[in-house]
Write a protein that binds this DNA or RNA. Structure first.
Lengths: 196, 196, 196, 196
DNA sequence: GATGAATGAGGCTTCATTCAT
DNA sequence: AATGAATGAAGCCTCATTCAT
């Protein structure tokens, strides 16, 4: 019971932080902004999190876990490597469309050096990228994809392409085309490029 | 004469800021850090720049102008659209290799919301992306590239792929492969994907 | 309870500021001086006041309210217009004698242009002056004072005379005569001057 | 020749400071503001004045000397003590009308404690007040004014009344009555009040 | 556990003053 | 004598964090 209520506050703070960070950026967000958004006192945040940085780390962990789980579930439905790449692109971009706050943070704040990406090894993000590398390896094993494609290069290129698309999506107010059109275009380039 | 000395200090501050921002990130960098690195007094910085944000903006402008000019010069040598895409990829990644401080800032800080990307329209960056779109349009005009490729989608995907490669390059200490190998892989995927 | 403690700090800061401003002048007073005098942390001041200017404004408001209330109470005791002018002069100068810090600030800092007297309309000060004008009007109505006296001119002249006396009082260390003597002299000049 | 040019700069700086201090107040005025107004370089000011405070002191000295000389000249024309008081009031307020910048500074900045009025004995201002005391003494000697009037109290009351009138005059934008009407009212109160 | 008032270290920025030219 | 770029000390203010209630 007390546990549940605590859990509840923990997630309320994470969600509040997601909204606040997305709107103002990590450095311009104040603890009191998050507290207000989460409807808790400033001090309460320090019961659940060591400090401000820890909120961002936890936010990444929680959000990336959900993103990762969702992607694994989506990919599990389809055995064909080509289709799997399409699904990855589409799932990734749809997620951005549905959860733009989180997308903004992952894109913008994940790049923050200083505390993140250098000192903090983002394990889940690495796993997320490896889903792509695995698809490529499967495709190569089944002879669909070229042998000279380096999976660890491909995974970054593919993710980077999607990520840049989604940044544009998040940042631009006017939408020029459907997000699924974008997903199909991008996965199309890559599939064409590595298919035998 | 006075002009030269002034110009001199202006660029010394820009270069100092490039080093400091790259190392500590914009928000963790102190004006006094930049001043020390540039070997000027703290107050001197405010003779040349309105405030801390303005240093970052100026830094982008100056560095992006150099990057853009260099890219235009490199592309001018080659008429073939396919080769031009390879040149773009190679030039981009080589630049990152040669100027990792600037690369770090453009990648990490350019994403900062707040003052950048939202309020500050990065004209030069848009021009840089449009170089890619133009190559695609030329290739389509000469019948080399597929007609259904959307240049404005392609340019982001292509840039995003290179950018993610270069982030990895900048952030990882151990190098697994040559940067030119990466450039060839990435441009290879895209060229294969949009060629007729 | 929390309210009382807050109120307590608010007035402690006002009183500390009164002492510090009186001693060093507004511009030479540091926030840290006031904080030290009030025995609070520097930052605490910003919980109760927007900025340094706001402390001065609040100080005026609070002190002028007390001064005004006191003067109204003193005047209420006496119906005779002539005696009321004497009471005004005496009460005003006695207040200065009892509260020289406040007097110094009102005299010295109230004149500061910039934020005060021009942008900030001092309502209470205007009310204070109008007490004098009202006495004159009453005296004119009852036929004691000359009809050609302009109350709105008289109020300034009368206040100015007292104010200059009190400035001398505050600033000079050696006292040449009793403050009540001064009050009687000044009110004497004016009463003689406007009596029929 | 060089002397004349130097003298010229000295007064240009004084006049520029008068305008700038009047507009922004002493503390909000920057040396560079005065330099710009005087059309000299910042550093030039330090050839003629020790520091910022010294400009204000010099400004008082110069302006008060002119004010004093003018008042002495005006009073010299009239032997009658009653008329002399009227002339003082009228001359004082006319000066304020003609030179509002100087009036603002003398009223506002002269009150500044800290550096002025306490540490800096304003000799000329004392002399200015003593002109009033002398008129009273003459009037008492010739039996026109009451014997019990204390000249050193009267001088402050009279000056204070005029000063407050002029403050109102300087600060208010809309003019409700003629400045000579005010002069006559004020001197009228006092003359009526001390006449036998 | 929850609160939010209080703390105080530290940053950005200003601007009087200097000094090489 | 004149300049104005450069200096750097110092102040206002913010805000992450603490802790008494």
């Amino acid at each position: 019971m007390a546990r549940n209520r605590s859990q509840d506050k923990y997630y309320r703070i994470i969600l509040a932080a997601t909204r606040v960070f997305a709107k103002k950026g990590f450095f311009h967000s104040r603890i009191s902004d998050i507290a207000k958004e989460a409807k808790v006192a400033d001090g309460t945040i320090y019961i659940y999190f060591e400090n401000k940085d820890a909120i961002l780390i936890a936010l990444f962990e929680e959000q990336m876990r959900a993103v990762l789980d969702n992607m694994v579930a989506q990919l599990a439905k389809e055995p064909d490597s080509v289709k799997r790449l399409e699904i990855f692109a589409c799932t990734h971009l749809e997620l951005i469309e549905q959860n733009p706050d989180m997308a903004e943070i992952i894109q913008v704040e994940l790049r923050q050096s200083g505390k993140f990406m250098k000192e903090y090894r983002n394990e889940r993000f690495a796993q997320y990228l490896d889903l792509i590398a695995d698809i490529v390896r499967e495709g190569q094993a089944s002879g669909i994809f070229k042998e000279d494609v380096i999976p660890n290069v491909f995974k970054r290129a593919f993710f980077g392409a999607l990520d840049e698309m989604s940044r544009f999506w998040v940042l631009s107010s006017r939408r020029h085309y459907d997000i699924r059109t974008a997903a199909r275009q991008v996965s199309g380039y890559f599939i064409g490029g590595i298919r035998r």
